[in-house]
Structures are given as structure tokens and as C-alpha cells.
Simulated scan of single mutants.
Amino acid sequence: MKKILIALATATTLAATGAFADAHEEMTMGEGLTMFEALVANELAEYDIEADVTMLTLGQLAQIRAITETDENTEKKREDIMAIVSDM
């Protein structure tokens, strides 16, 4: 009987730990997305572009970030970014 209780307690602990880890990973991913959105929002402000970054997809955010890292001139970057945010 003692072995059954120990096994049950161990299984319960492992299941609870796994659920906690899953919840923590989701929270961390959300925080990472929020930080990425804030980074892109700052970059949009630098190019004088108004857009709600929370309405952009992750792909659009990544495209904007990639554009800001190119060697293109500022006006070309602004045009390329505007093409993305105008599709919102």
C-alpha cells in the first residue's frame, strides 16, 4: 500500500510540474512577442509611421525588422514598411 501511495504522489507531482512548465513557456513566449512588438513600434516611430503593432502578424513584424536592418536609404525603408502596414 505504501508503494502505491508513493507512486501516486510521484505521478501527481510530475504531472503538476509539467503543467507548470507548459504555462511558464507560454508566458515567456508572450513576453518575447511583446518585447518584439515594442521594438518594432519604436522603429515605426523612427520612420514616422503610425500603426498598431498588436494588429500585425509575427511575419509582418519580422519583415519590418528585416527592412530596418538593410542598407537601403531611409525613404526606401519607409516605403517598404508602409507597404506592409497598409495591408493591415
Rank of each mutant, 00 (worst) to 15 (best):
M1P: 14
M1K: 13
K2W: 11
K3W: 06
I4G: 02
I4F: 14
I6T: 11
I6E: 13
I6A: 15
I6L: 15
A7W: 05
A7V: 07
L8Q: 14
L8R: 14
A9L: 15
A11N: 09
T12P: 01
T12S: 14
T12M: 14
T13A: 15
T13Y: 10
L14I: 14
L14Y: 09
L14T: 12
A16L: 15
A16M: 11
A16F: 10
A16C: 07
A16G: 03
T17N: 04
T17M: 08
T17P: 00
A19T: 05
A19H: 03
F20W: 12
F20D: 00
F20A: 13
A21L: 15
D22T: 13
D22E: 11
A23T: 06
A23R: 11
A23L: 11
H24W: 13
H24P: 00
H24Q: 15
H24I: 14
E25R: 14
E26S: 10
M27K: 13
T28K: 15
T28G: 04
M29A: 15
M29Y: 09
M29I: 15
G30F: 11
G30S: 11
G32F: 05
L33W: 01
L33M: 14
L33C: 03
T34A: 15
T34M: 12
M35E: 10
M35Y: 07
M35F: 08
F36C: 04
F36T: 05
F36W: 05
E37P: 00
A38I: 07
A38W: 02
A38V: 06
A38E: 10
L39E: 10
L39N: 09
L39H: 10
V40H: 04
V40N: 03
N42T: 08
N42W: 00
E43G: 00
E43D: 07
E43I: 00
L44G: 02
A45D: 12
A45T: 07
A45G: 01
E46H: 01
E46A: 03
Y47E: 06
Y47Q: 06
Y47A: 02
D48P: 01
D48R: 11
D48M: 05
I49S: 03
I49C: 03
E50A: 13
E50S: 14
E50H: 09
A51R: 06
A51W: 01
D52A: 00
T54A: 07
T54P: 00
T54L: 01
M55C: 01
M55N: 10
M55R: 14
L56W: 10
T57C: 08
L58S: 12
Q60T: 06
Q60F: 05
Q60E: 15
L61A: 10
L61R: 05
L61Y: 07
L61M: 09
A62V: 07
Q63F: 05
Q63I: 06
Q63L: 10
I64T: 03
A66H: 04
A66S: 08
I67N: 00
I67L: 01
T68E: 05
T70M: 04
T70D: 01
D71A: 13
D71R: 07
E72D: 13
N73W: 00
N73A: 02
E75Q: 11
K77L: 01
R78G: 03
R78P: 04
E79Q: 12
E79C: 00
E79W: 03
E79K: 07
D80R: 11
D80Y: 08
I81K: 08
I81D: 04
A83Y: 02
A83W: 00
I84Y: 06
I84H: 08
V85L: 03
V85I: 12
S86W: 02
S86P: 01
S86R: 09
D87K: 09
D87H: 05
